[in-house]
Amino acid sequence: MLEFFNENQEMIYFLILCTFLGIEIIANVPAILHTPLMSGANAISGVILVGAIIIMQKIDPQDYVSLTIGTISVFLGTLNIAGGFFVTGRMLSMFGNKKKK
């Protein structure tokens, strides 16, 4: 475990700084934006798609089971990203309309 810490020091610093940054940037969000922010953050967590693509590249083209799982995971990741950003956009456009009225 100590070895792991020594080898990955930079990454651990990066993790800690990102954690605090993540908390700080949304600290002043007004209650009305809670749901759109949640939805937007949800879309960003779809960046797991990058991992799915990386692993799809490693899979042997003869291994049909893994290929199927991989295709499903890419599909799920894309759905998370695309759906997430589109639905956030729709929520926010509805806010715009409300203000005009």
Partner: peptide
């Protein structure tokens, strides 16, 4: 988000770590 970040650490992939941790931290505060 945290699951994404863990996978990112596994692949040593910065964008997955960053995106995952932002969502993880912001999500808990939210």
């Amino acid at each position: 988000g945290i699951a994404t970040a863990l996978a990112g650490i596994l692949y040593n992939n910065t964008i997955m770590i960053a995106g995952g941790i932002f969502v993880g931290a912001a999500g808990i505060l939210l």
